[in-house]
């Protein structure tokens, strides 16, 4: 079937099997292989992309359901030589080893910082009624728990995200 996807600001007209997930459309049809397939069942987070500003598992949505939605993949966040602040912080803090979960971690973290700015609580937030959220290590860890990393760069991932989060707070 015909569908139109908007990815990293570019429009792509596709004629695909309705069974195609957004992740498979990216990887098998659009040569955007930054989004990774780690489990294909929403259990690892490697496929995380940002849809209309929100992080989602691209493996658990059909491509044909996503027309009119602005999709951002890791390729849309930054490139070598022009990395986003989170991408750059991941490199300096060694927030990865094999790198396979990394695009998902970075997309997830990018949108997660916005969730925190919007005051969304998490399972470890003491005061549910607070208007603002302070991203300490515990909050970051809980909010990033939908992204598995078997190399277990978790402490470095937390350091990288906290650095960017704190820098943003100072800038505001």
């Amino acid at each position: 079937m015909k569908t139109t996807l908007t990815i990293n600001g570019n429009t792509h007209a596709l004629d695909i099997d309705p069974r195609t997930t957004l992740l498979d459309a990216l990887r098998n049809h659009l040569d955007l292989t930054g989004s990774k397939k780690g489990c294909d069942h929403g259990q690892c987070g490697a496929c995380t992309v940002i849809a209309d500003g929100r992080r989602i598992n691209s493996c658990l949505t059909l491509a044909c359901m996503m027309d009119g939605v602005e999709i951002t993949t890791v390729e849309g966040l930054g490139k070598p030589g022009d990395l986003s602040p989170l991408q750059d912080a991941f490199v300096r803090h060694d927030g990865f080893q094999c790198g396979y979960c990394t695009p998902g971690q970075i997309c997830s973290a990018t949108a997660m910082l916005e969730e925190a700015r919007a005051g969304w609580p998490s399972a470890v937030t003491d005061n549910l009624e607070g208007e603002t959220v302070s991203l300490g290590n515990g909050e970051i860890s809980e909010r990033m728990s939908g992204n598995l990393c078997r190399c277990a760069a978790y402490p470095n991932i937390v350091d990288a995200i906290r650095e960017v989060s704190e820098r943003k707070e100072v800038a505001e």
Partner: peptide, 15 residues
């Protein structure tokens, strides 16, 4: 830092 780091964080390292 890992020299291939920028490729990995930008999704351009190919698996």
């Amino acid at each position: 830092d890992r020299p291939e780091g920028p490729l990995k964080v930008s999704g351009t390292a190919t698996y």
